[in-house]
């Protein structure tokens, strides 16, 4: 689904590289979590996969145009915007050139939010709002969904509810998931591979392998 070889990126071509020699191979149906501290290059990598940014060097191939995106809730938009759930999805439908309005309700049904169509987005809780953005990402029947820290600011109950839906999309609908996470436990429980970025570089590991490595590090630290 996504193939990245020896990819480097720097803003405006000015060194140092934000991403340095990244190699990734994500298969169809994979669930990859990207971990890393602030400034490690997580969001930059995602923006390159979303084609918002172009890599400075290296090779990148994405075998689908059907990509859904769930933005970070607190960074990118005004939560007091006077807009209904239906309007959010309907404007996205029009932008994608989808003629059938039923897609709006179909997407809402998948995330169990069909009753909220007429509700203002500002009246929703954080978890409900995040589900609406997942519904929006589902509009174009995507093969790949990219989520930017989907659980930020959510309580434990809302987080469980949200990850159940994301897991359902991955296992039942076969949608490939790439999710930036700040919570290691969430990444270990839900994904099947993990990429930990440190200073713009990192390698992909299976969750099992990563879990073992993490345990080793914890044991050594205790000793």
């Amino acid at each position: 689904m996504v193939e990245i070889k020896n990819m480097c990126f720097s803003y405006n071509g000015v060194l140092p590289f934000v991403l340095n020699n990244i190699n990734l191979h994500i298969k169809k149906g994979d669930y990859l979590s990207i971990l890393g501290e602030n400034g490690s290059g997580k969001s930059t990598l995602v923006k390159i996969i979303l084609k918002i940014l172009k890599p400075t060097n290296g090779f990148i191939a994405i075998k689908t145009d059907k990509i859904g995106y769930v933005p970070q809730r607190f960074e990118n938009f005004n939560s007091q915007f006077p807009i209904t759930v239906f309007e959010v999805l309907n404007f996205h439908r029009k932008a994608l050139g989808i003629k059938d309005i039923e897609y709006v309700y179909k997407s809402l049904k998948i995330v169990h939010m069909e009753k909220f169509a007429k509700e203002l987005i500002s009246n929703l809780s954080g978890g409900q709002m995040q589900k609406i953005f997942i519904a929006r990402a589902l509009m174009g029947e995507p093969e790949l969904i990219i989520l930017d820290e989907p659980s930020t600011g959510l309580d434990a109950h809302s987080q469980n509810d949200l990850y159940k839906i994301i897991k359902h999309l991955n296992t039942h609908l076969g949608i490939t998931i790439i999710s930036i996470e700040h919570n290691l436990r969430v990444a270990l429980v839900n994904s099947n591979s993990i990429l930990e970025l440190t200073d713009g570089t990192g390698t992909i590991r299976s969750t099992k392998e990563y879990s073992m490595k993490f345990q080793e590090v914890s044991v050594n630290a205790t000793v």
């Binding site: 933005p71 996205h92 932008a95």
Partner: peptide, 19 residues
């Protein structure tokens, strides 16, 4: 109209949607 609202609400999302 539709595109302007999308950009106003979520500029990055609008870019990704091909606007």
């Amino acid at each position: 109209y539709d595109k302007l609202i999308y950009i106003t609400f979520d500029e990055e999302g609008a870019k990704i949607a091909g606007i």
